[in-house]
Amino acid sequence: MTGFSWEDLWVFLNRRADDVLELTRDHLVVVLISLVLAALIGIGLGILVRNRWVARTTVLTAAAVAITIPSLALLALLSPILGLGWVPTVVALVFYSLLPIIRNTVVGLREVPLPVLEAARGMGLGPTRVLFTVQLPIAWPVIMTGVRVSAQLTVGIAAIAAYVAGPGLGEYIFRGLSSLGSKNALNYALIGTVAVIVLALVLDAVLILIARLTTSRGLRV
């Protein structure tokens, strides 16, 4: 392998800046699409199973087992069915994102103090209004923590989706690894990896801000 040089890396980055920005944009878009879908599914499932022991245990166990499947294996299984590119990537990312969101939704909702729920019912609120006006707002910080964990998982696994021609920075990482010994192999892998890390940090900071802005003032730490 050729030796590393900061000067060569800087030249490489300047020449491919537009390409890196485009890959970063695609990486972010596929992550956001997957995260929104996972949040809708995960929060919905968490709400449905929160008070049902058998259903709750089944869903959480299934999600926990699912996340142990190696990402390359899952992508390889999905590609003959869904083809290459965005679709198998989104399906895989949603698949891996569900556990933290479901688990935190269940935990957050079940940890709402019983006296608070009894007070809400005593004021004449029905189950649906109690859920949306009392339970979800109180559980929201815990739910958003699950979303943040899923976001970090998604950003990392999205890079592996280049295996099935998925969008994003994984293209550079795989290109670098597949051309070890060439002049720019290390530059490709390094730029792709660093960009993924930076994207993960920026996305987490944005989600922290969103969580703070959408949490009731009385619950903010």
Rank of each mutant, 00 (worst) to 15 (best):
W53Y: 11
V90I: 15
V130H: 04
V134K: 02
T58V: 14
V90W: 05
P141A: 15
L74H: 06
L37G: 12
R103F: 04
V91T: 10
M144N: 14
V54R: 14
R121Y: 04
W53L: 13
W140K: 13
A38Q: 12
L72E: 08
I143W: 02
I41G: 02
I41L: 13
L35G: 11
V116N: 05
V106D: 01
V31G: 12
L48P: 01
I67D: 00
T133R: 15
I102L: 03
L109M: 04
N51S: 11
R129E: 14
L77T: 07
T61E: 11
A120E: 00
T89R: 09
S97I: 08
S71Y: 09
A39K: 11
R52Y: 11
R56T: 00
R56M: 01
R129Q: 12
A119H: 01
V54I: 13
S34D: 10
L37F: 09
I41W: 03
R103W: 06
S34E: 10
L78C: 11
A66K: 01
G124L: 11
V36L: 15
P137M: 12
P137F: 03
I81F: 07
G122C: 07
V36W: 08
V49P: 14
I102W: 00
A38K: 03
A64P: 00
G83W: 05
V87R: 13
V65H: 03
R148H: 14
G42F: 07
T105P: 07
P100T: 14
P141V: 15
P100H: 11
V130W: 05
L45Q: 05
I47R: 07
L136W: 10
F95V: 00
G122S: 01
R110L: 01
M144Q: 14
L84H: 13
L40I: 15
A66G: 07
T133Y: 10
E118N: 10
V36K: 12
G122D: 03
A76R: 13
L109R: 01
V94T: 00
L98R: 00
L37Q: 08
L72W: 08
G46A: 03
L75M: 06
E111A: 03
Y96D: 00
A66W: 02
G126E: 10
G126S: 10
